[in-house]
Design a protein around this nucleic acid. Structure first.
Length: 920
DNA sequence: TTAGGGTTAG
């Protein structure tokens, strides 16, 4: 052609676009402009629509927008509709909307493009608003607009709305149109109504590949993986050639039911069909491998993809998040932001999920800013994700602000808010939100209930929160839901109501790992360690594998029983299986070593300060305190504050207890007052008991009594027991009697109360009173809990009672005791007969003292253990003062280290000294 | 018009 006119330019460019030769089309367009030939509206529209095909063409689209504005064609309905569609394709919905609102004239395509934009950018609700506006303005829908509207109903999972639209479709007579019917199949699929999807599919007079894909996807979405594979076979028999969409649906069917075997098979088919470089199939494979635990495969696939689109990046982001690699996820996000202008609400949803701990708050705020800049801030998913993120970062104020600024909310919004309150230990707020959720017309689903049950985790919560929630669960029929049932079981277990959790556990047909773990933990913490270990073994026998929770529970049981060897074996297994990288498990192991007397091992496995959770710090502080390292306990507390971890009520119990046992009276009182003023922790009865103990132990009995009368909480048995014990140590008969009286009012069966009272009387030589107490005990049928000590020698535990003579080595044991007594008397030991309880002569009293079980256990340990090794003795009751003094002398005389554990703490004896500094 | 990526819970 020697002479080219305007029409021929336009024809050739549109032709190139039509067959996908976009680069050529743009090159011709450039030449055309150089030659000053004006493009017509058709060529401009087709070039703009070419920019919808690939994200690499976004900047060209924006340039054409500029060009169109320059030549004054923005008012043309075709051109502006194409631009509206272009901006919608890439998520620039505010631009798309502006075009729409400013159009002097609109056609059905303009309306449809706007709806498609909203629908594809995660805002089907807005799409439906446009649809109602369209109906109000009397514009009739074509097949494309109906298809979009129907798919929006599907995304919204709004069945009622769906059926209304279906009625409109029937009136329009378009229900037999293939595109419309296809959309109906997928809409029913989204509703979980596979029957109706099937019905539409089989009634179709004519089907295309999309019809087949839609029915396959309807099955796969609903977890009916086998059926989608069956339809796939049927499709092949009908000689319909599967396309990439078919294969994508099948791969995702496999990942949704976590069937790696079938998924791998389909991957093979993909390769066989030569579809392995198709972007959307690779995307589904990235997800398949990530969700079935093959993270490496997923990452490799992503790295080797010949071409990537936004969804590839989003899939990889999600995969990193799912695999717990949040740093990598944020780095990937940064790379995406550097490389391309394209991002979607889903990109940011994953980005926010990567910022799920207080350390990532700054990154989270940055993502928030990016969302606002990208114009996604009014999106429902973004609002929901923001609430979740701020909740997980521990800033509920920000979460609430996000909640209040949202234009629309759904059930997820409320669940995220409630979950945030629960996670941040604000049960009152959680309950308040739970209530207003229902007042706002939204009903709770199983996730709401699982969340809200988590707000109830202490015995005191049971009546206030736990039982009313349980009642509402029964009322709404959610009791049958397995997740809810497990949460109920866990709730009762955490509140220490083992009878109720046992009842639920026993009646549970589908016990899973969660149920077993909850029962193991409950028994370890509230019931018995033996029962917990029994369950641990049974769980394994029932064919379930152990996870982080089971190991934490098993370790807690070992701590509870103070069985170091078993705990160590468990810890070895944990290391072998790689569970030691989990912080919860490490915390449980630290606690186990601490409670079994091995502070050295605690420090060996202690994570770096920046990696410690509040629980780790609490365990460390209580460990130091329990072992008499009071200075270290206090230092650890300050280190905890330095790294920015907020102390909680447990931290203060350990801290105050350290001050208490370390005789750090002023420090203890100062921490107690700073607890509320500086850290906002309300003192509980347990803190008050520490202060009473602190004052009483140091002999400030008057102040202790004054504190009791002035404290904001009514005193309980622990308060009076502590005061009584202080009266016994500091010989205050009057106050002691008063304390014992109060104590016995609260708990008449308390054997310790009688024993302590008779102690006070005995010290004062009030043997008549001692007799009265003893008679009272007898008439109330109360017996002193028998003392018992045990010692582990060469892996065998031997226990002894008071004056025990049942052991085969009895002769040797008592000989040894005689030797020891002689040896330490020479070194200055004086028997403290004030610990003897009977009115006998001094010699007899001394004899009784040397019948104490802890002394017998010590003698046995010395006879049978290897020279130089540490002797470990356990006692079920508090160690006696005379025995404490004997242990000190013996440790010096025989040059052996001795560790004595009573129910409260460890005493490390070495070279005549005890770690408690004789102040316990 | 079909597929693939996301939020609450586990």
């Amino acid at each position: 052609m020697s002479e080219r006119n305007e029409a021929s330019w336009n024809t050739i460019i549109s032709g190139c676009v039509g067959v996908g030769l976009y680069a050529e089309a743009f090159e011709l367009f450039r030449k055309m402009l150089v030659q000053n030939i004006e493009p017509n509206i058709f060529v401009l529209s087709s070039l703009i629509s070419a920019c919808n095909k690939s994200a690499s063409m976004v900047s060209q689209g924006i340039q054409i927008h500029g060009f169109v504005a320059k030549i004054g064609l923005l008012s043309d309905v075709f051109v502006s509709t194409a631009l509206l569609h272009f901006y919608g394709t890439y998520g620039f919905m505010s631009n798309a909307r502006r075009f729409f609102e400013e159009m002097p004239e609109r056609n059905v395509v303009s309306w449809t493009s706007l709806m498609v934009g909203y629908s594809n950018n995660g805002d089907p609700e807005e799409a439906m608003k446009i649809y109602s506006r369209m109906r109000r303005e009397g514009i009739s829908c074509n097949q494309n607009s109906f298809a979009t509207v129907i798919s929006s109903c599907g995304s919204l999972e709004d069945e009622l709305l769906g059926r209304q639209v279906l009625a409109h479709v029937v009136v329009s007579g378009l229900e037999s149109n293939v595109s419309v019917a296809n959309s109906l199949i997928s809409m029913f699929g989204s509703f979980g109504d596979v029957e109706n999807a099937k019905c539409v599919f089989y009634r179709m007079g004519e089907r295309d590949i999309i019809s087949w894909n839609s029915i396959i996807s309807a099955y796969s979405q609903n977890g009916i993986c086998e059926e989608s594979l069956r339809i796939f076979q049927k499709m092949r028999r009908a000689n319909v050639k599967p396309n990439s969409t078919t294969l994508s649906s099948l791969v995702s069917a496999c990942s949704s039911v976590d069937n790696l075997k079938w998924g791998t098979g389909i991957h093979g088919l993909v390769v066989k069909l030569g579809l392995d470089s198709i972007v959307c199939i690779c995307n589904t494979l990235v997800t398949l491998y990530s969700e079935s635990g093959r993270f490496e495969n997923s990452e490799l696939l992503f790295l080797e993809m010949p071409e990537r689109d936004l969804i590839s990046w989003n899939s990889m982001l999600a995969s990193y998040v799912q695999n717990g690699q949040c740093r990598e996820a944020l780095e990937l996000l940064a790379e995406l932001l550097r490389m391309s202008k394209i991002r979607s609400h889903v990109t940011f949803a994953s980005a926010m999920a990567a910022c799920s701990s207080p350390e990532t708050l700054l990154e989270g705020k940055t993502v928030h800013a990016l969302i606002i800049r990208a114009g996604f801030h009014e999106n429902l998913l973004m609002g929901n994700s923001l609430i979740t993120m701020y909740g997980k970062c521990g800033v509920m104020g920000a979460a609430e602000r996000a909640f209040h600024t949202m234009a629309a909310r759904d059930g997820v919004t409320w669940n995220a808010l409630i979950g945030g309150f629960v996670e941040n230990e604000e049960p009152r707020e959680a309950m308040k939100a739970f209530k207003s959720m229902r007042e706002n017309g939204l009903s709770a689903n199983y996730i709401t209930l699982v969340n809200i049950l988590g707000s109830c985790s202490a015995p005191n919560d049971l009546l206030t929160y736990g039982m009313p929630i349980h009642a509402s669960i029964v009322h709404t029929g959610f009791e049958r839901d397995d997740y809810v049932k497990n949460s109920l079981l866990t709730m009762y277990a955490k509140c220490g109501d083992l009878a109720s959790s046992n009842f639920i556990f026993a009646g549970f047909a589908n016990k899973n790992a969660v149920s077993w773990n909850a029962m193991i933990a409950a028994n370890a913490h509230h019931g018995s360690g033996e029962e917990a270990l029994k369950l641990f073994v049974e769980m394994h026998r029932s064919g379930l594998g152990f996870d982080h929770f089971s190991f934490s529970g098993g370790l807690a049981a070992s701590s509870n029983l103070a069985i170091l060897e078993e705990g160590q074996q468990l810890h070895n297994l944990i290391i072998k299986l790689g569970f030691d990288s989990d912080l919860h498990v490490t915390n449980a192991a630290m606690d186990m070593y601490g409670k079994c007397g091995e502070m050295v091992d605690v420090l060996k496995i202690l994570p770096e300060p920046s990696n410690r959770s509040r629980l780790s710090w609490n365990i460390l502080i209580s460990g130091f305190s329990r072992h008499g390292f009071f200075k270290e306990a206090l230092e650890t507390f300050h280190e905890m504050l330095q790294v920015g971890i907020k102390p909680d009520h447990v931290t203060f119990v350990s801290l105050l207890s350290a001050c208490n046992h370390g005789g750090l009276i002023d420090e203890g009182l100062a921490y107690f007052s700073s607890m509320t003023s500086e850290f906002g922790v309300t003192p509980g009865i347990e803190h008050c008991v520490c202060i009473i103990d602190l004052l009483g132990r140091s002999g400030r009995l008057g102040e202790a009594e004054k504190f009791i009368t002035e404290m904001p909480i009514p005193p309980n048995d622990l308060v009076w027991r502590s005061l009584l014990s202080a009266c016994r140590n500091h010989n205050n008969l009057e106050l002691g009697k008063k304390a014992a009286e109060r104590l016995l009012e609260l708990d008449p069966s308390d054997d310790a109360a009688y024993v302590l009272l008779s102690n006070v009387c005995a010290i004062n030589g009030r043997w008549d009173d001692v007799e009265t107490v003893r008679k009272k005990m007898k008439s109330n049928n109360i017996r002193k809990k028998p003392a018992c000590s045990w010692v582990k020698v060469k892996n065998k535990v031997t226990s002894f009672g008071m004056g025990d003579r049942s052991h085969a080595q009895t002769e040797q044991i008592y000989m040894k005791l005689k030797d020891l007594m002689k040896m330490i008397k020479q070194a200055g030991y004086v028997p403290d007969t004030s610990f003897a309880l009977h009115d006998t002569d001094e010699e007899q009293k001394e004899h009784n003292l040397w019948n104490h079980s802890e002394k017998i256990a010590l003698a046995f340990g010395l006879i049978n253990s290897v020279e130089g090794s540490t002797i470990r003795v356990f006692k079920n009751l508090r160690v006696c003062g005379d025995c404490h003094s004997v242990y000190k002398h013996v440790s010096e005389a025989v040059r052996r280290d001795i560790v004595l554990r009573d129910p409260y703490r460890f005493h490390h004896f070495s070279r005549g000294k005890c770690s408690c500094g004789d102040y316990w």
